[in-house]
Design a protein around this nucleic acid. Structure first.
Lengths: 203, 203
DNA sequence: AGAATCTCTGAGCAGTTGCTTAGCATCCGT
DNA sequence: ACGGATGCTAAGCAACTGCTCAGAGATTCT
């Protein structure tokens, strides 16, 4: 069933292999050269396909961006919930956040959202949902660690943790790494002290 | 004295009033609509001038960006040094960092640097200098507050503080504000507790 | 007054962008 | 076997980009 909502243009199937190749190419381009490099012609070239196919599978470039974003957002949300279900702790949360690849991905999208209003709403929505889910996890983890909300409110802990990793990614992208290692070490030691149950074991 | 370094093109005087108007227009456009909106034609339109003037005063668009950046960077570095000389404390540092306008400015530039290599070096250079200066101030402030480097290394305190404000700005640009107030309040209370000398007085 | 310099502009080039249109080839259900 | 849906593509349009060039006015120096 072709989508015909507003425009009459035909749109390719959502489960097409070609469509996926385009999405992969777009994502790769986004990470390597920034969103400004994600043009229909360059995406197609990277995928080894013709530029018109981009417009065949995505009504607009914004649609492409949105789809690229959704894929990763859904995936990382699912991974988060899996990990938290297995072990609801600050340590787990930190480990998930410390993945710099994910951070630089989201930074690029925030920058993009800054000048594409159509995209901003979608990203903001996901971000809010993500934050709510994480907040719940942090609250649970903190009380499990024996910390009351008066000592440190869960929201504060969350903003500090997620914020820190994002800034590290941002600065790393710039080539700045001064103080990063020390900061990471400090946070990890603080968490380990708070949650001695896993000590220095894994990894 | 016209600059003739590599190209033979004539370049307008550095102290020109028109040049300044262009810089202002570019900066405004950058903050309002993101760096993608900063094109020669749009900058000129915003300044009420002809597009060719942009190229008369700046050899390339990158030069324009660089000049816009330098103006603000120099200014905020000077302001920082003035403020710290007057009162070297975490409170002062936080107050300076908490200016969200400056944060969103620098975020836009980091995004820009991400896909304009010529600009990255310049920005990274300033950022490193800025960090070094701030680090010195934080070290002094912390020892003045009676905290040794074992309890919390100055670098860590700095990265946490500056990182936090940047993330707040980033999220605010996205329309996300959940937890911001609580976090700001928390940090300010923590600083006030550490530096009781200024209590809840000013502002 | 004349020369030289500086500021500014009309016209335009070569390149890129998002997106469309018309149509070809292939597959698939009937 | 045939009609319609699907995957794909050649060609191209209108808009925009950075940047150049030649030269017109204005200002300053001698």
């Amino acid at each position: 069933m072709p989508i015909t909502s507003t425009s009459s243009r035909r749109i390719g199937a959502a489960d097409s292999k070609t469509r996926e190749r385009l999405l992969n190419a777009a994502e790769q381009l986004l990470l390597e050269e920034g969103y400004a490099a994600v043009t229909s012609r360059r995406v197609a070239a990277k995928a080894g396909l013709k530029p018109q196919l981009v417009h065949y599978y995505f009504r607009t470039m914004d649609d492409l961006f949105l789809e690229v974003y959704r894929r990763r957002a859904d995936e990382s949300l699912a991974r988060f919930e899996r990990a938290i279900a297995a072990d609801c702790s600050l340590h787990t949360l930190w480990r998930l956040n410390a993945d710099l690849r994910g951070a630089s991905f989201s930074i690029e999208f925030v920058a993009l959202a800054n000048h594409r209003k159509a995209i901003r709403a979608e990203i903001a929505g996901y971000a809010e949902r993500f934050r709510a889910a994480q907040l719940e996890a942090v609250s649970a983890a903190l009380t499990a660690d024996g910390l009351s909300a008066d000592q440190i409110p869960p929201v504060v802990a969350l903003v500090l943790m997620t914020g820190l990793t994002q800034v590290l990614a941002l600065e790393k992208a710039l080539g700045m790494t001064a103080g990063h290692e020390a900061t990471i070490e400090y946070v990890e030691r603080a968490i380990a002290q708070l949650e001695p149950r896993r000590a220095t074991s894994e990894r």
